[in-house]
Design a protein around this nucleic acid. Structure first.
Lengths: 214, 214
DNA sequence: AATGCTTGGATAGTGGCACTTACCAAGGAA
DNA sequence: TTCCTTGGTAAGTGCCACTATCCAAGCATT
């Protein structure tokens, strides 16, 4: 398959594919001669994954390169490789630890994890981007005067835990290791928009059940 | 309160506040004389809301102006005002209706809504951004060869519905109408990052319960 | 009154990012 | 030989969220 055909089958412009090649998001094709390179189905698949990350997941190009680097790193074990790929995904900026709201949010989230019995998550508080995102968002609520405490968060966390159980059950249905890695990555990138969309749709449904359309 | 003090209390630089004033994200202060303007607590609150939208919610400045325009529009009724504000939030690009994957995704989501009995949501399929986001994400999965059908989505949708019930119960605890509008907006902007962070934390927790840290 | 600081407002510039355009030499077909 | 196509490179584009620089008006101190 030539570059032009790769472009036609993926719907991505030839110039953009060249850009991705230059940026290392796609491995180079097999060079046939000085002016021709041959691409295969694996390139097409990788290109679609890249597009899904950039367009649906809004992952910056530099992050995509980093994530794919972890995915392709055969020297790492499964858990580490997956963790590295997921943790490279975009994050909120570092919380300012001197901020009083941030400190209060830390305490609140700690209380929440204790109450839920998430012992493993507790060990990740210093390194997990998910933990940091949670602290930033809770601090933002507090700064606006809303008391988004453990009592409010706990029922949400229970529901998210059930969601995670579904995620992992689904992951285990994937037949082989490389597929599980890609599937988990897609889950993080695409399933979150899916959940968000389902959430908003559910809000619209529930709201119109309670109050009608008016 | 002068602009410099507004800056100090919000942590937003004076130059950025001037930028927001220029862009219409903040109403102008009360002009005292040619070189002095006076701001109040309402300005500070609005500024924090704007920052929450831009920094945590990643809402573009133009969208923030649009959303706030709906929030402040007293001529609209409650449901409409809230709906307008929420629907102005960032969306995925329009799905390409000619794409075979998009058409298949439409069918799949339609089946899902039937199965769930979300009769109200079914009426929104042509206009709701949440519906469109869902179709785009499901189409992206299909394009990569994963059959993200109604059977897979239904249990997620059930959990999201319970989440929406929690959201609306919480909303009803807000004492007055303007507070409910702002609270609902914050819920859409900040609660989604909270849910996402809880989701990822729950995945990490569940994953380490099943497989250990290795 | 003179000096020097601060204030809010306007204008233009910055840096990052995701492309996109223009161009090039090499190769293949008519 | 002529012309088109190919993949690669360098420079440019458009957008966006700020940010730096000016400026004149006011206020305070000397």
């Amino acid at each position: 398959m030539r570059l032009a055909q790769l472009s036609a089958r993926s719907g991505v412009s030839a110039a953009t594919i060249k850009y991705y090649l230059r940026e290392g998001l796609l491995p180079p094709g097999r060079q046939v001669n000085a002016t021709t390179a041959e691409y295969d189905e694996e390139h097409l698949r990788r290109l679609r994954l890249v597009r899904a990350m950039i367009q649906v997941g809004r992952v910056p190009v530099a992050k995509v390169r980093e994530v794919l680097g972890h995915v392709d790193d055969d020297s790492l074990g499964r858990t580490i490789r997956l963790g590295a790929a997921l943790w490279a995904l975009p994050q909120v900026p570092e919380p300012d630890e001197d901020d009083e709201y941030v400190r209060a949010a830390h305490d609140e989230v700690g209380t929440l994890l204790d109450r839920l019995g998430w012992e493993n998550a507790k060990q990740l508080t210093t390194i997990s981007p998910a933990y940091r995102s949670l602290v930033v968002a809770v601090a933002a609520f507090r700064r606006l005067g809303y008391d988004w405490g453990a009592e409010v968060l706990a029922p949400y966390a229970e529901l998210m835990h059930r969601t995670a159980v579904l995620d992992l059950d689904l992951l285990e249905t994937q037949p082989s290791e490389p597929e599980r890695i890609e599937f988990a990555l897609l889950g993080a990138i695409l399933n979150e928009p899916v959940l968000q969309a389902l959430h908003r749709l559910a809000q619209e449904e529930e709201s119109s059940r309670r109050y009608g359309f008016e």
